[in-house]
């Protein structure tokens, strides 16, 4: 049911840096989305929860376009050198292919289903030496899952240097943009996990999957939030040899901020240390939230070298993941 990455001899050898993200082009307020049938809750209820706008792709923009936009930012900063692997995570299985379902149906040729976005990214950015790994069963926790996986790959493949982690999701046309009382946005995030020092050192990570709640509805997801999120963080901290008191920041996903306040009390960290400043402007960007919020923390100037952070996310499946990071000198 749970798995994680404890303090191995290599634990000091994986770092996270080169954060980037991209959001759907259309920034839409709650009233407009409600009028267009994208919401289940009343706009005032979502507003009371802390949401304000969300980002929806133009009709012709794909999840892959978002992934490419985020990756292009890393490329522009020179972050794509020495990439030996790409981990491409999607929450929605439909975003795990850029293939054309209609063509596959018409031609009865399944090859059309296997046009992979990770492969496209590899060729579009000339990452010739990079292998591609798809990660598509961790829902909103996929990005954190890719950090764990990247760290493991670096531990196994002694000549690999850098792993590009990308997550991108765009909801299908006509889909509701609300999940478990959260306002959803289309978006992508990317980062690089490297053997060489970067902004954050990965101390530990932990994942819990509960397939028994695989078909959980919104109310059950809300119901399981506190117990499982608490457990995943506490167990991640145990693996890191830390306690909640050692955390400087909990970088959360963009779910109901009041729920995170309650969570902070349960965990025993001050509410002011639970960091999700982008809820109102970004919405819940599937598995990209933690990167968006981590970047905001860097930009805020409040992060200091040595600070310890827990990145936390919950998702369908049901999945919960937590990555414990430590800021390095590079953040200043």
């Amino acid at each position: 049911m749970s798995a994680g990455w404890g303090r191995s001899p290599l634990s000091g050898n994986a770092f996270v840096g080169c954060l980037a993200y991209a959001l759907g082009e259309r920034r839409i307020d709650l009233a407009t989305s409600a009028a267009n049938g994208r919401l289940r809750s009343e706009p005032r209820d979502l507003a009371e929860a802390g949401f304000a706008v969300h980002h929806v792709c133009n009709p012709t923009t794909s999840a892959y376009d978002l992934a490419r936009a985020a990756t292009a930012r890393i490329a522009a900063a020179g972050g794509l050198r020495d990439v030996d692997a790409i981990i491409y995570a999607t929450a929605l299985p439909t975003n795990g292919t850029v293939g054309d379902l209609d063509t596959a149906r018409r031609t009865r040729d399944i090859a059309h289903l296997m046009d992979f976005p990770g492969s496209r990214l590899q060729v579009d950015f000339d990452l010739d030496g990079a292998v591609v790994v798809g990660l598509n069963q961790q829902a909103c926790t996929g990005l954190l899952g890719s950090l764990h996986l990247a760290r493991a790959l670096l531990a196994i493949e002694s000549d690999w240097r850098r792993v590009l982690c990308v997550t991108a999701d765009r909801l299908p046309d006509g889909a509701m943009y609300e999940q478990a009382y959260n306002l959803i946005s289309d978006g992508a995030a990317a980062c690089v996990v490297s053997r060489q020092p970067a902004a954050f050192r990965i101390i530990a990570g932990h994942q819990i999957t509960n397939g028994g709640l695989g078909l959980a509805g919104a109310d059950e997801i809300v119901g399981a939030f506190f117990t499982y999120t608490h457990r995943v963080v506490v167990e991640a901290l145990e693996k890191a040899g830390l306690t909640a008191g050692d955390l400087d920041w909990v970088v959360a996903q963009n779910a109901n901020p009041a729920a995170w306040e309650v969570f902070a009390r349960l965990l025993g960290v001050p509410e002011s240390r639970v960091w999700l400043p982008s809820v109102a402007r970004a919405g819940h960007v599937v598995s990209a939230d933690t990167i968006i919020n981590l970047q905001a923390l860097v930009d805020s100037g409040r992060l200091r070298p040595g600070h310890r952070l827990a990145l936390v996310a919950a998702g369908h499946g049901l999945n919960w993941q937590c990555a414990i990071l430590q800021a390095t000198e590079a953040v200043s």
Partner: peptide, 23 residues
């Protein structure tokens, strides 16, 4: 695999109750 619930203090429960109103 539903876990046993966590005991929470009164401010946390009050916060949860008011947050639930937005749901």
């Amino acid at each position: 695999r539903i876990l046993r619930p966590i005991y929470c203090d009164e401010p946390a429960f009050d916060r949860l109750t008011s947050a639930a109103r937005s749901m």
